[in-house]
Design a protein around this nucleic acid. Structure first.
Lengths: 117, 117
DNA sequence: GATATGATTAACTCATAAGCTAATTATTAG
DNA sequence: CTAATAATTAGCTTATGAGTTAATCATATC
């Protein structure tokens, strides 16, 4: 996952409305109108959120056979997997971090300085 | 993890500078000044980012024994674990997603009625 | 063909986030 | 005591993000 893509993904997730959309899409794909109805915001505002989510790759737009006016949105599982990978990577700090912290604490105990205020 | 806390966490991560700080802290704790030196922004700007990261719980500020002017920042592993849990939860859509999509497409062929206002 | 519907784009307002320099606080060093 | 250092807070500017209503586009219905 590129840095730019990771950026778009995290920005997409950093909004409660967009996370709510994701939560709705967890159960099944939804039409844009459904998502508007389930929210408190206007259709244009939702359209904007959907664009951002789509740019992040977290959701995708598909067309529905019966009515070409309708846009159906659904989650893209593989993009969440990419994010998981990134998080896993970031979490690779246990060993070094704990050692460094231990050293820090031990260093501290040798000089228990009193503080005021 | 509360909704507000999740929000703060994702907002904290949705900025490249802050992710860079996290990356630096993966190796070992750093002084605020070190983080400024490693970046292209001013000290006040960095201080701001550190406050946001601290509010999210992803990092923590500790004091260094030798010099009380210095602030040392380090990662908080358990907060990343919480985020992992959230992501795991969101990823619980595979099975339901596929079934629901199939059902939806089939249902579509029966043609839903148009809604009027 | 005219009208209604589903959704997006356009144009605008308002709030917030990020950046800077200057000032402040706290602590250390001379 | 005075000057220097580490970091933060204050005050200000600018860019961006989210929301709105109005307009547009495409398609379906009568």
């Amino acid at each position: 996952m590129s840095a730019a893509q990771l950026d778009r993904t995290l920005i997409a997730l950093a909004d409660p409305t967009r996370r709510q959309v994701i939560d709705l899409l967890r159960k099944r794909p939804r039409r844009a109108g459904e998502l508007v109805a389930a929210s408190t915001i206007s259709a244009p505002a939702m359209s904007r959120h959907l664009r951002i989510l789509r740019a992040s790759g977290l959701i995708e737009e598909t067309e529905v056979p019966g009515d070409a006016r309708v846009r159906l949105y659904r989650l893209r599982p593989e993009k969440f997997a990419s994010l998981q990978s990134w998080l896993d990577e970031v979490q690779n700090f246990w060993a070094g971090q704990l050692d460094a912290f231990k050293a820090h604490v031990e260093d501290k105990t040798t000089k228990p300085k009193a503080r005021r205020k």
